[in-house]
Design a protein around this nucleic acid. Structure first.
Lengths: 208, 208
DNA sequence: TAGCTCATGTAAGCGGTTACATGATTGC
DNA sequence: GCAATCATGTAACCGCTTACATGAGCTA
């Protein structure tokens, strides 16, 4: 039994939130949607059902508050088993994640599209990344104003958040810059005619 | 009928390969594994079954070559419908993809781990990205030696490949640098005691 | 003799998305 | 009057992963 590491799922994201304090499903949803979702995407329906599954596995316990005029509220708390699962997961190295990026796939086949179109889509996409970058920078500025900068704060959870936020900013900047660069490169090459008597095009194969 | 855009799947990656020339399943597998897989990850079993599904949908046709001493080979060719599907997909803007990154999730909860451990894992992860970056740079150098640089080549398919490869290099560099930066930041903060009488930690919430 | 290349498949299961379902309260 | 907030679920579907299955020929 070479104990297989549990696959990463939403589970650990939720355990992490509940490790800080007990929360209701609804509160989890709100916090998730304002922080975790930026680097670990998940939908409402999945979060609710994952919480139930985790309770069934003994990672969480829940109790219901009866309310009138609105649905009952379910409060979740992490168990000892849940904390152990979380720490066990945290305290292991992370493999580099395989990439799945639609924009790169499209760009790889950009030669099948008229140059102007490919350039248009690259610029548009770059613009979106630029906007996200600026949004993240705005959030960073707000957080710094309210809670102090990374080097100033004594709050370790806040500091972790800053680290991740910084990655977001760098990622979006890198992506926006690449889009602009690639669009310019394509433009510079121009709409060269698909030369019928050109040499057999080399297959783009990265490793021999 | 607000014609829903087909979800992006492996399909388009395969159509793109077959748009350049007819290939057998095995050849697709090889080429895929040496180019596309770096930005659109997929497994062998999925590729084989996706090819059959696409044939059933009329995007491809196939014919079998009988071989002795080894299994028969199946040759695929893109159909007119397949080419239309590919061009239709290519000629639409791409939405920014939601992110799902285990390393960021772990870093977000890094405060639940002793500082030295978090630093260790960040450095290790950064090293892996650095290695991938260097691998990509090596591939770029080889390609340039064999086929000419991006600005020198007349081969548009090769040029598209260079664009994507460049993104890979920038991505890996950005990631490696961020890991090193984050590790240094955590180290600089030091292993401060989890201060029991510290103020209630601020929830890290990015948007108000 | 061990491992790589060639060459294809099937089946179970799971993580995740989309859509369906309900409905009072509060604020503009 | 309209939208957002509060507050939970279920069900169908599907893309993808993992594991199972086979087997000859070639090279170190």
């Amino acid at each position: 039994m070479p104990d297989k590491p549990d696959p990463v799922t939403l589970q650990h994201a939720l355990l992490g939130l509940l490790a800080r304090r007990p929360l209701s499903g609804w509160e989890i949803l709100k916090r998730f949607g304002r922080s975790v979702v930026f680097f670990w995407n998940a939908k409402r329906s999945q979060i609710y059902s994952e919480l139930r599954r985790m309770e069934a596995r003994g990672l969480l316990t829940s109790q219901v508050t009866v309310q009138q005029g609105r649905p009952n509220k379910r409060h979740y708390e992490i168990t000892a088993a849940g904390e152990e699962a979380l720490k066990g997961w945290l305290d292991r190295p992370t493999a580099v994640a395989p990439i799945k990026d639609e924009m790169l796939l499209r760009t790889f086949y950009a030669d099948l599209l008229p140059t102007e179109r490919a350039v248009l889509y690259l610029r548009r996409h770059g613009g979106e990344h630029r906007r996200v970058q600026e949004e993240f920078e705005g959030i960073k500025a707000q957080l710094e104003a309210r809670h102090g900068s990374l080097s100033a704060t004594a709050d370790d959870a806040l500091a972790s958040g800053y680290l991740v936020l910084e990655q977001g900013i760098r990622y979006e900047r890198m992506y926006a810059e690449w889009c602009e660069w690639a669009a310019a490169e394509l433009e510079r090459r121009g709409s060269r005619s698909r030369d019928a008597n050109a040499a057999e095009p080399a297959d783009f194969i990265m490793t021999s």
